[in-house]
Structure formats: C-alpha cells, structure tokens
Design a protein around this nucleic acid. Structure first.
Lengths: 104, 104
DNA sequence: AGAAACTGCAACCGTGTGGTTGCATTCCGC
DNA sequence: GCGGAATGCAACCACACGGTTGCAGTTTCT
C-alpha cells in the first residue's frame, strides 16, 4: 500500500536535498548553478538531482548546453494526500476502539 | 521553514518502521508483541519505536508490566498538510513565471 | 576548428544507521 | 519472596550513502 512511499521519504530525508528543492521551487536551475549557491560540489548536487528525479520530485529539461531542473509541487501534494489518508485511517481505527471501550 | 520536517522523513524512510506503524495503526502493541510478528529482534523494534516517538509519530503507554505503543494519525496528517503547502507554493511560483512568459 | 563551460562516470572515503547479541534491570504474578 | 516476562543499555558489525576528487565526453559560441 505505502511501500512505494518509502523511496520518496528517503529522498526527502536530507537537508541538502531540501536546500535544492527550495531553490528549484523558486526558479529552474542547472546542477552547476545550484553548486554555485550551495556548499557542496557539483557532483554531489548531480547525485541529489538524480535521486529526486527518481521519485518524481524534480524534472530535467535541456536548455541549450545546460540542463535545468524544476521542482514538481504536484508530486509533493500527491504524497501529502496519501500520507493524510493513512493518518486518517489510523485515527478512525482508534476512534472505533475508544467507542467500544466507552460502551463497556 | 521545513528544517523540522527532515527528521520526520528520516523516520518514515524505512520499510520496517512502516511495518510497525501499520500494525500500530490497527491496534496498540508492545515492543515484544511487535517482535513476535516481524522478522527482526525486539531490540531493533525498540530502536525503531524510539525513533518514531522522537518525531511524534508514536506514543508509549505503560500498561501493567508492558509498554504499548499507538500510532498518532494526527501527527501524520499534520506533516501531510505542511507538505501540501510547500508543493502548492512551488506550483504557484511556476504559474506566476509562466504567466509572465506568456505576456512577453 | 578550438576553447570554454557544462554534464557524466568511476573510484574512493568516513560516517550514520539498521541490525545483532549479551547482559542488567524492573515489574507482575503465584 | 522468587521466578519469569517484560524493558533498557552497551558494544559491535555490515552496509548504504553523502561527499569528494579526477577525468572523459558534449555542446555551444567565437
């Protein structure tokens, strides 16, 4: 059910990737451009972008000789929806148990 | 802004922890009880439960000589809401840029 | 055509972490 | 009170992963 979610969370469980995502959320940038703004090497950025693209959080687009990436908010919202559903399910379960307990 | 979210995603980026969470979503269980259902040792489960409790996804409750845990769906939904907000912000940014581009 | 700039690939390193085993400890029940 | 069943703590291990450096391959602009 949520097995496919784990890789997405793995991708989101890193501060550097959030630094990247927040910048890509504002405007499209290449790996080199990101490396100029962040305190890590371009190759590290490239790995992060590959990881983010793997789970659909980011999308590459050739633009001349550089490749710009953009953050996909729709994908993030999609994950958020699944999370919310799971959380809601847990709570309804508990609510049911509480109701039974009160009846006794 | 989202700095406080990273530890939560780190907690969610593990299949075993999802196995634990899905069981705790159905009913409260102790570490030993979970260890009986999952193919890992009790101590491993205890570590996972500590990690999950650390980010508020799970809550312990003494019940006799055992400690039962329950999954907190509200916390998960809270995270989902923050995620959705961030995703929406990215998309509005892009929409604004597209609007400007079309005007030119 | 050639130089500059950007991307891609590979090897390597240190650390964080999921997992284990072993033992100490606490607490219920007979 | 004592034995058993639960948790807690510590040391240890293997592997994944974030990061680096170095070099090769492409594409563009003059």
């Amino acid at each position: 059910m949520s097995a496919t979610l784990v890789p997405v969370f793995a991708a989101l469980a890193d501060q550097t990737r959030w630094d990247i995502l927040s910048r890509l959320g504002a405007r499209e940038l290449s790996a080199s451009a990101l490396a100029a703004e962040l305190p890590v090497s371009r190759q590290a950025i490239a790995k992060h972008l590959a990881a983010l693209a793997e789970v659909g959080l980011v999308e590459p687009e050739r633009h001349g000789r550089e490749i710009r990436y953009r953050a996909l908010g729709a994908r993030l919202s999609e994950v958020a929806l699944q999370l919310d559903r799971i959380g809601a399910k847990w709570d309804t379960r508990l609510a049911r148990i509480r109701a039974i307990a009160e009846r006794l």
